[in-house]
Design a protein around this nucleic acid. Structure first.
Lengths: 116, 116
DNA sequence: CGAAAATGTAACGGAAGCGAAACGTCTTTT
DNA sequence: AAAAGACGTTTCGCTTCCGTTACATTTTCG
């Protein structure tokens, strides 16, 4: 069974989560950064810069810069691929997993609070 | 009946919508701008800069700048309040309503495509 | 009426993101 | 072994956003 919502409910859910994100966000990720983060945590590894760029439809420097930022926030980590040393593999971190998990819980909490 | 989802579904929904937003975004709104836009379109008017700042938990210049950007994109419009000429009232536009409506439809489309 | 308060905006310096292009390193091809 | 290609990063100039502070206008209150 698929998730069913009316447009008004979907928009209200989106608003509530964004408001919560803005109100108490220490991280302040951009839309692109959040898309990258979720892709790393939801899609199966390995994750290379090139593959992430293709998935998002952006250039590689965009991924590099986003990983710089999220790496300094400890949300992801980078490791050289020893089998093909041209590649960089992006891996999850404990902090990142916790952040994503909390986001999921926050979305559900807001969904449960939606008017009928 | 409230909307029910598992955390994995919520996160997957979020990822899918963000990916779509990044892939074919003509607008590229920030998280704050999107939160402001949805608040203007979902919460009952009137919307003043001060009230929006309080709702988001940010300073007034943040709202002013976001409205500058979204105003040039025709997503919202500003009008001086004639009853209290200190106030600026933010109003919806046809273009903004269309944009928000499409976002709602996009969310629903992604929700329907979620795995069980 | 005049002082104080409230509202939104402008200005400032700093930080971060952008697209495009050039670059260094590593692997594959010839 | 040399040339070509692939991968990720760095650099460039530019734009936009940020927080803070100062400001002009308008209203309220003493």
């Amino acid at each position: 069974m698929a998730i069913t919502m009316r447009p008004s409910q979907a928009l209200r859910l989106w608003q509530q989560v964004l408001l919560a994100e803005v109100r108490d966000d220490a991280l302040d990720l951009t839309t692109r950064q959040m898309a990258i983060l979720l892709t790393i945590y939801l899609d199966p590894p390995p994750h290379t810069i090139r593959a992430l760029a293709a998935r998002l439809g952006v250039t590689k420097p965009v991924i590099t810069r986003a990983l710089d930022t999220m790496g300094s926030l400890k949300l992801v980590s980078r490791h050289r691929d020893e089998l093909d040393r041209r590649n960089v593999l992006v891996r999850r971190t404990v902090e990142g997993a916790l952040y994503v998990e909390r986001l999921g819980d926050a979305i559900i909490a807001k969904a449960l609070g939606l008017p009928i």
